[in-house]
Computed example of a mutant assay.
Amino acid sequence: MASTSHSVVSELVQPGEGRLGHAPGDHPPVPRSRVGVVLANLGTPDATDYWAMRRYLNEFLSDRRVVDYSRWLWQPLLQLVILSRRPFASGRAYRSIWNQALDESPLLTITREQTEKLAVRLEAAFGDRVVVDFCMRYGNPSTESVLRRLQARGCERILFFPLYPQYGSPTTATACDQAFRTLMALKWQPAIRTVPAYFAHPDYLEALAASVREAYDAATPRPEVLVASYHGVPKRYLEEGDPYYCHCRETTRLLQERLGLDDEAIETTFQSKFGPEEWVGPATVERVAELARQGRKHIAVVSPAFAADCVETLEEIQQEIRDAFLEAGGETFTYVPCLNAREDHVAALEAIARHELAGWL
C-alpha cells in the first residue's frame, strides 16, 4: 500500500462510477461497492467447425464431474478416438440449429436475453447497486472472466445462479466448482452465495405448467401423453447419492398436480445417454416409440431440466426423438419449448434471486 504521507483524494472512481472516500493520491481507483448476480449455464462452442467443436468437447468431456473414469484410461480414449470423430457429428448437430443471424448457438442467445431481462427487473428494484451477468461452464464467456469482470466493477458480493432447476453433480456442482476455482486465484475474494435447486419453487412450476397449457391449447389434436424428458445420468450416480434423478421425478409429480393430469397422461424419461454403463431410464427415444406402438398417436414432450433451448432439445428432441416417434406409427408430436426468456420464467428467476439476496440488498 502507498504511504499515508501522500495527498488524499476525495473520490475513488471508475469511469461512470463514483463513491466518496479517502485514500492516498496514488491509490488505484476503487469502484463503488455492488452486488453481482451471475446466471451460469452449461456452455457452447464458439463455432461449428472441427477445431472449435474439438476445443469445446475436450473441455466438457475432460471434466471429472461429467466423466469420472480413471484419467489413465479415459484421456487416451478421449484424445485419440472420441475427439478424432465426435466433433464432426456434433458440428453437424449444431449447424442444424445455429443462430445464423448472430453466428452463435441458441443457448448463448437465450441466456443473454434472460440476463438482460433479469437485469432490468433487478435494477428497477435496486438501481445500480446490482450488476447482472452470465457465464458458461464450458466455452465463452468463461466463469473466470465474468467473475473477474464483476469484481472489477466493485462486486464485493456475488450470487452465483446455476440455471439447473434440479441439482446434479455434472451440472450444478461443476458450475459451482468452476466459480470456486476462480476464487482460489483471487487476492481479494468476493463473498459468494450459490442458488440451490429450485425445481419445487412455485413460480418455476407455474411457468412450466403455463408453457404446457399453451402448447396443449395450440395442438390439434390434443396430446394424449406428456413426456417430461430430462437429461440422463449414469444409474451409479443415483446409488452414490446424487439427488438429480429424485429431483426429476419430483418435478414431474409437481407438474402433474398443477396440470391435473392422470397418471397415464404424463411420464418421466431420460435422454442423451453416453458411454457403455447403465443409465437411469426409461430412455426417451425408446419410450416415445413404444408409446406410438401402443396406440398413443399424439404426444407432447417438455424438457423441465433445461432453462434454455439447446442442442439437446432443438436437435435431439425435435429431430431424433420426433423421428423415432413418427417412424413407430405416431401421428402428431408437439414439442413444448423450454422456458427460455418467457416473462413468467424471468419473473421466477427474479423471485429466486431476490430470496437468495436477502440481507445483501
Rank of each mutant, 00 (worst) to 15 (best):
L208A: 15
C176P: 00
R213Q: 14
F199H: 15
R193I: 11
Y167I: 04
E214D: 15
A200C: 14
A173K: 13
A215M: 01
L208F: 14
P170W: 11
G232D: 08
Y216C: 08
A215D: 01
F180I: 14
E214M: 12
R193C: 10
D203Y: 07
L205R: 09
E214Y: 05
A210E: 13
Y198A: 05
C176M: 15
W188R: 07
V233G: 02
L238R: 12
F180N: 05
A219Q: 08
T171Q: 08
A197P: 00
A218S: 12
T171R: 06
P234D: 03
P221W: 09
P196F: 11
M184I: 03
Y216V: 15
M184Y: 05
A228K: 01
T182G: 06
P190E: 11
S211R: 14
H201V: 03
F180K: 04
L183A: 09
P221L: 07
T174E: 07
P202D: 15
A179M: 14
Y204R: 05
Y198R: 03
E206S: 14
K235Q: 13
P234N: 04
T194S: 14
R213C: 10
Y230W: 01
L205Y: 06
A173Y: 03
A200S: 15
E240S: 12
I192F: 02
A200F: 05
L238P: 00
C176W: 13
Y216N: 05
I192G: 02
A197N: 01
P170G: 10
H201F: 03
W188F: 00
Y216T: 08
H231S: 09
A191C: 09
A207T: 02
E206F: 04
E206H: 11
V233Y: 06
P234T: 00
H231V: 02
A191Y: 05
T171M: 04
Y167R: 10
A191S: 14
Y204L: 06
P223L: 08
A185S: 14
H201E: 13
W188V: 09
S229Q: 01
I192P: 01
W188I: 01
A179G: 15
V212T: 09
E239D: 13
K187N: 12
G168L: 03
L186K: 08
R193M: 07
P221A: 07
A215F: 00
Y216D: 09
G232L: 04
S169V: 13
L238K: 09
D177L: 08
R213K: 14
T172L: 10
A210P: 00
E240H: 11
